[in-house]
Design a protein around this nucleic acid. Structure first.
Lengths: 147, 147
DNA sequence: CTTGCTGCAAACAGTTTGCAGAACT
DNA sequence: AGTTCTGCAAACTGTTTGCAGCAAG
């Protein structure tokens, strides 16, 4: 599936007249190699580990590109920092976010999606995207009396 | 209902040993006098209109206080800017946000709330809060061939 | 060769903070 | 009088941008 994504990006790049560069390859690889929701900084650190020359701005620029290409999805967490997750074509999922340890669990619920569509329709809105985040404590943090 | 809120804040302030100041009164009044979702800057401008002496930082500090007191709710929009809305005790609502004109429509859906609780339970999470935002075009912006 | 991309550092926007003086209790 | 709060400006954080040199096509 990593290859698929790479192809998807190459297709997008070709269509947009973008160049294929070493940096973009590296950043895409690093992004695809992880399953977590990464901040740009985390991404940058991982990239720099193997390719020290790559700069901060390039990571930002490339992640924006991946988002436009439909490969990454940008999340705006509560602290205002952006995080990126994999975007699976056509699919959508939401998040359970543990306020204790920061863990993020993904879930999908077709019934809710359907209700959202109905609500939007009722208000005459044409929905292009949505986000739903449930904040609370995960099983681990609930047990631990972490003060 | 404005009085209720003021009392609620006074109660909170008393409990926390906070002082009642002119600035806090003014900011609370301005906040309660509007039904929109205000950014701190907008709030600051409104406050300054009638009370030019009040500073930016005080508005920030006071809004944080109102959020802690359960009177205001802080929203994190996509651009990372904070906005505040009224928090109605016990109630919760979500948002339809027009990406064209920025309009925010509030809605409530008990079925979705219920489904959210079930999902959380299924994953062993104890939910403390949640947010759901649907982004798209409102009827007005959909009609207008803007762009 | 031409044009887009990169890396750097400086610019930016929104928010927070340190401090001296003012105001509440 | 004691202490919290305020206003200012400077600091900070995350992100974007201008520019000279580099590299892909």
């Amino acid at each position: 599936m990593i290859l698929e994504k790479k192809k998807a990006f190459n297709a997008y790049a070709a269509k947009q007249g973008l160049r294929s560069t070493r940096q973009r390859d590296v950043i895409l690889d690093v992004f695809l190699a992880t399953r977590q929701h990464l901040s740009v900084e985390e991404l940058y650190l991982k990239v720099k580990a193997s390719h020290p020359g790559i700069g901060f701005a390039t990571v930002y620029r490339t992640m924006k590109l991946l988002a436009e290409a439909g490969i990454a999805r940008e999340l705006t967490l509560k602290n205002g920092q952006a995080r990126y997750e994999h975007q699976l074509a056509g699919e959508h999922h939401d998040h359970l976010i543990c306020t204790g340890c920061g863990a993020i669990v993904e879930f999908e619920d077709e019934t809710i999606e359907q209700l959202q569509r109905e609500i939007a329709e009722r208000h005459g809105f044409t929905i292009t995207s949505h986000r739903m985040d449930l904040f609370g404590l995960c099983p681990g943090c609930r047990g631990t009396t972490a003060g």
